[in-house]
């Protein structure tokens, strides 16, 4: 394990170069096709960013967050509200801050309690924010939606999402090398020990949730120009939250790149379903959830890792048997 900070290792350097090359190739994609495949790739990139950001928090903590749609919608709305008078990058920053603040509030209310409260709270969060935004919009502006006109085209959005995904990976890598990352590892192992070695467990979890939420908010902000006309139900669409959970869990959340393995196939499945059986979406999502729980509880990467470990064990000489099991008994 080299999560701890003593300069960049050879291996990390090689991985870094690999990612840079892959990103470079991906960045060229919009030059070849501007139609269907680009639009599909934008979706792919969007969910790659969302699922990785989700895993940033839910991977190490095992808290199932359904707040993605709320963060995403806040980002979208930040852009929609100010697009005519404020430069786009500043609006993106607003979106990130708004999402982080919401994450902080939700975290403060629920992350001290058991995971069930957190799931339940986040389950209705997007709906709550949607109701409040709809009400406020009707009351203070008298309008039901907002127009977003920018010069951005699909390819620009793709590039921004690609950059965002890379930024999330770099952040994840930096967190792993930081005190926060080490704290999360300890919390994931044993929360009691974590508290007694001096870790403020609630604060660490809230901080991580805020970072994850901010990235999802940025993704929402980047996607705002895609909609042209934004209404609360489309910006705060709860389906986003569920799709993020499905794809991330399908890929596996132990490693930060795990979700990518789930995103790629599921986006194609979704695309197929949306085109051929548009009304069967809930059934497909239901089956996906059930299949994950029953067949791949640790995600596809979990299955692969297990297989790899088995293969290695078969090909390597048997490690020397571990002496005496730790005794469980005490007087």
């Amino acid at each position: 394990m080299s999560e701890l900070p003593f300069g960049i290792t050879q291996k990390e350097l090689r991985i870094g170069i690999g990612i840079a090359v892959a990103a470079g190739i991906a960045a060229l994609l919009p030059l070849f096709d501007q139609g269907y495949y680009l639009s599909l790739s934008v979706n792919l990139m969007l969910y790659a960013a969302l699922c990785t950001a989700w895993t940033l928090f839910s991977g190490p903590t095992h808290y199932v967050s359904l707040a993605s749609a709320a963060f995403f919608g806040l980002g979208t709305y930040a852009v929609a509200l100010g697009v005519e008078s404020i430069p786009f990058p500043i609006l993106v920053a607003f979106g990130a801050v708004a999402a982080a603040i919401l994450a902080g509030l939700v975290g403060a209310a629920t992350l001290r309690l058991s995971g069930v409260y957190f799931v339940i709270f986040t389950l209705g969060l997007a709906e709550l924010v949607r109701q409040v935004v709809t009400w406020a919009q009707a009351k203070f502006t008298g309008k039901t939606g907002l127009y977003v006109f920018t010069d951005f085209r699909e390819m620009h959005i793709f590039w921004m999402l690609l950059a965002l995904t890379i930024a999330i990976f770099i952040t994840g890598w930096l967190i792993n090398r930081s005190r926060l990352g080490f704290a999360m590892q300890i919390i994931g192992n044993d929360e009691t020990v974590a508290r007694h070695v001096g870790i403020d467990t609630a604060r660490s979890k809230i901080l991580l949730f805020m970072i994850s939420g901010a990235f999802i908010g940025i993704a929402g902000a980047i996607c705002a120009p895609r909609y042209a006309y934004i209404q609360p139900p489309s910006a705060f669409n709860p389906q986003i939250s569920f799709l993020v959970v499905i794809m991330a869990l399908l890929g596996g959340t132990k490693r930060l790149w795990g979700p990518l393995v789930g995103v790629v196939p599921f986006i194609f499945v979704m695309d197929f379903v949306a085109a051929r059986l548009p009304n069967q979406m809930p059934i497909v999502m239901g089956i996906a959830f059930l299949a994950i729980v029953y067949f791949v509880p640790n995600g596809v990467t979990g299955v692969l890792e297990k297989a790899l470990a088995k293969w290695k064990a078969r090909n390597a000489p048997a490690p020397q048997a571990v002496a005496d099991k730790p005794a469980e008994v005490r007087p």
Binding site: V119, F242, V245, P282, I287, A288, F289, A291, V293
Partner: peptide
């Protein structure tokens, strides 16, 4: 929670 989400959608 995950399984009953599945049932919910199904």
């Amino acid at each position: 929670i995950l399984a009953t989400f599945g049932l919910m959608f199904l």
